[in-house]
Design a protein around this nucleic acid. Sequence first.
DNA 1: CACTATGCCCGAATATAATTCGGCATCAGA
DNA 2: TCTGATGCCGAATTATATTCGGGCATAGTG
Lengths: 171, 171
Amino acid sequence: MSTIDEIDERIVWELCREARLPNKELAERVGIAPSTCLVRVRALLENGTLRSFHAQPDWASLGLPIEAIVAVRLKAQARAEIKTYAQRVITLPNVLNVFFLGGADDFLIHVACTSTGQLRDFVATELSMDNSVASTQTNIVFDHLIGVEHMAEGSSWSTVRDAVATRKIHS
Amino acid sequence: MSTIDEIDERIVWELCREARLPNKELAERVGIAPSTCLVRVRALLENGTLRSFHAQPDWASLGLPIEAIVAVRLKAQARAEIKTYAQRVITLPNVLNVFFLGGADDFLIHVACTSTGQLRDFVATELSMDNSVASTQTNIVFDHLIGVEHMAEGSSWSTVRDAVATRKIHS
DNA sequence: CACTATGCCCGAATATAATTCGGCATCAGA
DNA sequence: TCTGATGCCGAATTATATTCGGGCATAGTG
């Protein structure tokens, strides 16, 4: 059905690194005509390989200098409500990301706040208040690095897929 | 120096939600001329308010269906090397995000892998191997929601900044 | 007050990019 | 070989990005 070939992978790779890349430039980088490239990008959006495009702001410049990650555990009997809880949490304004986890914690909530005071109030009134919650643990984020911004120039998804195996062979 | 006014905030807001928004459409949404909008976007990039633009792919479609978050603790005497370690980790192919934390864990590493086998090898050979590492704890990610994709239509950064305080006043 | 410098905006003009479309090549099945 | 389907290309068209000159407001100055 939706087979991703090498060119599609390169398209996704380039857009992950630089989402606002013009189609013409993108086409050039992956070695196809702009018109063809456009068709492929639309197909990738259509079949869900490309999900969305987001700007990464400097939160401090927006008046939100405090970032934190809150680990949340639900009560054992409330596990069934995990989706309901997450669905509510993700719409809260301060929430940047929500990770559903296996393991001891049920999820991690990545938030940005105006101050440690707002963070405390946010955790207290929005996250902990819920009856399903057993405990929360708040960790300040000092810095956040984005992988795709730091990868080697000539890399690609195959580099990622082969990363560990390759290294093992060499050792 | 770099004062962000209301229009700038709306620009950043719109680009966070939809990074590939054409400049013309962006200008229309924030109520200024395209030429003016372009100048503002460039200024926001210049002064660092807008840091980068990234596509969000479906990792499974790229052959990386296993996501995990690894909590890493360094040995107390190795805390000085925290930046060195992070600098190395962020360039590894499987790493999507690195969060520097305060608290018990020194950081969280968000990774994508081809299989649980690759994940195990990756954690073992790339993350745990380092002499500075005291312990790691790996948590599978079942799902990842992005906040800005789920916020109410009419929201803005001021909604975020006022979120908790507003709620407190009402209660 | 008049004058000027500054900053910010707009809109017309131009350069560049996005998009559509017809046609060609390739390939698989009949 | 014929034929339909698929995917690519490049020219033509449409739309967007970008540059630039000038207008308007504000603030500082004589």
